[in-house]
């Protein structure tokens, strides 16, 4: 067991815990994949063509393409956040699965890492589902778009880590509503998912720059439309910083909660 504030001692022992979650997912894989596909399809088609028909081009592309590129990031974020909060909370608190695991020779840090990697893994599927929709609708024709694929796990790790930190603080599922309402939804609004962030007052743009989602969008959208993004290292750096800080906070808060 680690000291309360020591950095997480991560090891490959997280793998059997990750495989546990995979085995559960496999039982529900088909509805899960259908949900991954149907949800973004509805948004992209509904909002994209509905709003798109009354909008001229946005940022040099059709609105449906603009929106789909933003939604690659927001859907990946939502999926990682949801898995790291609701699903991890039910394993930690409701089913006591984590207790069972830590009675075996696996440390809590390994469990938290497994949940993080799992949340990221699942979110990659959500992101891929939208990429498939984008390609199927012919919204992106550039080979550069393939670089979005390795971006997805980074988005997943970033928001999975932040979600896990929330989970470690949560007393009940209700707590997560605050996080969605007060953090995730406003962040989507200021991060250029539905409309260019430049449309907002400067103050909002300044705040958005400190949040991770806008950096994901700043990488994904140009790549999908065949441009090399600017400030690549900055964008990756901000997301990595959130991922590392979130994971560290999650590990420490979980220790405080469960190893007391």
């Amino acid at each position: 067991m680690m000291h309360p504030f020591f950095p997480p001692a991560v090891s490959l022992r997280f793998v059997p815990v990750w495989r546990r979650n995979l085995l559960v997912w496999r039982k529900l894989a088909i509805p899960s994949i259908l949900g991954n596909l149907a949800d973004p399809m509805i948004y992209v088609l509904g909002l994209g063509y509905g709003l798109g028909s009354i909008l001229p081009q946005v940022g040099g592309v059709s609105y449906v393409a603009f929106l789909a590129a933003g939604m690659v990031c927001s859907s990946t974020m939502n999926s990682a956040t949801f898995e790291a909060m609701y699903s991890a909370f039910s394993r930690m608190h409701v089913q006591r699965t984590w207790d069972a695991i830590t009675n075996a020779p696996i440390e809590l840090d390994d469990v938290v890492l497994a949940e993080l990697v799992w949340a990221a893994s699942k979110s990659v599927l959500s992101g891929l589902a939208i990429l498939v929709v984008i390609w199927a609708l012919g919204l992106s024709g550039s080979a550069l778009a393939l670089w979005v694929i390795p971006l997805l796990p980074l988005i997943g790790l970033t928001f999975g880590a932040l979600g896990l930190a929330m989970t470690a603080l949560a007393r009940s599922y209700d707590f997560f509503m605050y996080y969605f309402t007060l953090v995730i939804t406003p962040m989507i609004m200021v991060s250029g998912v539905f409309f260019p962030a430049e449309q907002l007052p400067a103050a909002f743009q300044a705040i958005a720059g400190f949040l991770p989602l806008i950096h994901a969008v700043a990488l994904a959208r140009p790549l999908l439309f065949g441009q090399v993004p600017a400030d690549i290292l900055l964008h990756i750096g901000v997301m990595l910083a959130y991922a590392v800080a979130g994971f560290y906070a999650a590990a420490i808060l979980c220790r405080r909660r469960l190893l007391k």
Binding site: P16, V17, V24, Q95, D99, A100, A104, P105
Partner: peptide
Amino acid sequence: PQMDNLDPDFTVRENLLVYGRYF
């Protein structure tokens, strides 16, 4: 443990198999 924490998503066999992997 005092409180049952078997994996409700698994069968009896899967519970044992997955627990073996933790070791």
